[in-house]
Amino acid sequence: MQKAIDIKENTDKFEELLRYIESQDKSQGILMQTLHKAQEIFGYLPIEVQKFISEKTKIPMAEIYGVATFYTQFSLEPKGQYTVGVCMGTACYVKSAQLVLDRLQQELKIKVGETTEDNVFSIQATRCLGCCGLAPVMMIGEDVYGKVDPKDIPNILKNYR
């Protein structure tokens, strides 16, 4: 089940979103930016937020849900404090990125797309991060780790807990 989000507690956030929606030129296809903005504000896209967008933009809810679920960057579930992204781009893959991912999943006891019990880490498999020279590459939040040896993962994770 999705976690519901308290509308009263989050009025500031909803107002910020509303200001954004009102500032947009509606003739130019605004749904993608609006969802990006909403995700930036709320961290994810709960149903209440999608309904709110539907109400304010007059875009049918079905369409919004369709778009929100089509793109992998939009998340309907809250994410952990840190997203650990393992690059599964081709250059990293041929340099054994799969072993990095396996080890990470084993360490955190979760699978790709899931979040740890304590809400600290989520794992994501990403595409080329543009630093293939450092393959295999792993990112935690904004920090990039290059030439990752699966053995080092427990130590790297320690810095974040």
Binding site: G29, M32, H36, I59, E63, Y71, T72, F74
Partner: peptide
């Protein structure tokens, strides 16, 4: 901005995406 869908590199899909679909 895209949102992580490879197929959006295809031109007609890209257009749909800009239109908000």
């Amino acid at each position: 901005l895209g949102a992580g869908a490879f197929v959006c590199g295809e031109e007609t899909a890209l257009i749909a995406s800009i239109e908000g679909q």
